[in-house]
């Protein structure tokens, strides 16, 4: 018991940081979503008007954001799983080198990466000039930049190394002997994957998906810089509430609507994954 109490005491600073700088601000921000703004000042009330307005005015944008977020989530998770699987089971001595190369790009500058894609995908960009030089196209492709495609590829590139970490972490613990035993007993490759590898890697896969889905659904910098005028995501409208419009309550209601919808989707997918995978 004493040991336990010492343990919690030692963890106290971190827990206080978490409580004061994460739980408290987020709770306060949630409370603000029921408030109103009058003459640029916050007025504490209790109204659902902000949520009503979110659904009336921004449901189209929310839907678009969810489609982008889900696409990024699925593509990122699939690529990250494939990469981590190859590193863990198939690449042999090349594995650590490839993993190191991927982790190298973990924190290579969020804005720098978005800027890099802007220069790659632009009308006079690297991809267009390269394709024209090779002779694949005569005219530069204009639909590369300032499109949903640009937003998706930029976000996948940013989130992929972060998604590889938890998946690779969960694949390390998979027992090689169990795989060999299954193969010796005649299990086909797909059966080994579904029966042994995926169930054990499920936590890592779900964590990677949840992270990449939530972060991309809440992003506003990428659509602003490479999405163009037609690709505004909910994050852009949320951020707008804190700039000129000064409507923190509406921005807060929009944030929590987005979070709740995203969490519902993640929980739904989690139960779906439990139903489909054999016990």
């Amino acid at each position: 018991m004493l040991k336990q109490r010492q343990g919690w005491l030692s963890a106290a600073p971190a827990i206080i940081v978490f409580a004061v700088l994460f739980v408290a601000p987020l709770s306060m921000f949630f409370v603000v979503s029921f408030w109103q703004v009058k003459l640029f000042a916050l007025v504490p009330t209790f109204t659902f008007a902000n949520y009503a307005k979110t659904f009336q005015e921004y449901s189209g944008s929310l839907l678009f954001t969810l489609v982008i977020g889900l696409t990024v989530g699925f593509v990122t998770t699939a690529l990250a799983f494939g990469f981590a699987y190859v590193i863990r089971f198939r690449a042999g001595k090349l594995g650590p080198l490839l993993l190191f190369m991927a982790l190298f790009t973990l924190f290579g500058g969020y804005l720098v990466k978005i800027y890099a894609w802007k220069t790659i995908l632009g009308r006079e960009g690297i991809l267009n000039t390269a394709l024209m030089w090779v002779g694949v196209i005569d005219e530069p492709l204009t639909m590369l930049l300032y499109s949903p495609f640009a937003v998706i590829i930029t976000l996948v590139h940013y989130l992929l190394p972060l998604a590889i970490l938890p998946i690779y972490g969960s694949l390390i613990d998979v027992d090689d002997h169990a795989l060999e035993a299954a193969r010796d007993l005649g299990a086909k490759r797909g059966r080994v994957m579904l029966g042994i590898v995926l169930p054990q890697a499920r936590f890592g896969v779900i964590a990677a998906f949840a992270m990449s889905f939530l972060v991309s659904a809440g992003d506003y910098v990428t659509p602003r810089l490479v999405g163009g005028t037609q690709t505004s995501m909910l994050g852009n409208f949320i951020e707008g509430q804190f700039g000129l419009r000064m409507n923190a309550p509406l921005g807060s209601a929009m944030s929590f609507t987005m979070l709740v919808v995203c969490l519902a989707i993640i929980i739904g997918l989690w139960f779906l994954s439990r139903l489909t995978s054999p016990r």
Partner: peptide
């Protein structure tokens, strides 16, 4: 080593690594 290099699965991982590194190297 060589036979692992020729596997399509290894090539997939190499392509992913190139995808991750190229934009940063271009900057």
């Amino acid at each position: 080593m060589i036979d692992r290099l020729l596997r399509p699965s290894t090539w997939f991982a190499v392509l992913v690594a190139i995808f991750l590194l190229t934009p940063i190297l271009l900057v």
